[in-house]
């Protein structure tokens, strides 16, 4: 059910930017630290976009790796286990450089040909 609510949030964001134009592609980035299951998101996205201008749009998901930085000793690493302790100095405060994204980057929409040639 988690991905149901999230796919609705993606659809609402896309709809806002599509401004009434049919949507063909949605480019979404998901950080590895978010607990989002891409297959489940794709499944629900198809359902929530039925009978809308997004129907049949391709949801392209890019997974962003988790990258952490220790503000104490400067160590940078990509954890494969959810631990936010610096492996080098143990005591430093750890900040997240990437991996928390859940962002619509861009969309591809169809537009009617508009004649811009000078009359």
């Amino acid at each position: 059910m988690h991905e149901m609510a999230l796919s609705s949030a993606v659809a609402a964001t896309v709809e806002k930017h599509a401004k009434g134009r049919p949507v063909k592609v949605v480019n979404l980035t998901i950080g590895k630290l978010r607990q989002v299951v891409p297959d489940s998101l794709l499944f629900y996205f198809d359902i929530v976009t039925r009978d809308t201008l997004m129907q049949g749009a391709q949801l392209k998901i890019e997974i962003v790796p988790a990258r952490l930085h220790c503000t104490g000793c400067g160590e940078r690493w990509e954890p494969d286990f959810p631990t936010f302790r610096c492996p080098a100095c143990v005591t430093g405060v750890v900040e997240v450089l990437s991996g928390e994204e859940f962002q619509v980057e861009s969309i591809e929409v169809e537009e009617d040909e508009v004649c811009t040639a000078p009359k």
């Binding site: 949030a9 609402a12 896309v14 930017h17 619509v104 980057e105 929409v109 537009e111």
Partner: peptide, 17 residues
């Protein structure tokens, strides 16, 4: 008809926020 790429760069949960 032609296809246009629209830059969005928006957190999908912005509306909730």
């Amino acid at each position: 008809m032609h296809r246009t790429k629209v830059r969005v760069v928006e957190d999908a949960l912005d509306a909730n926020t």
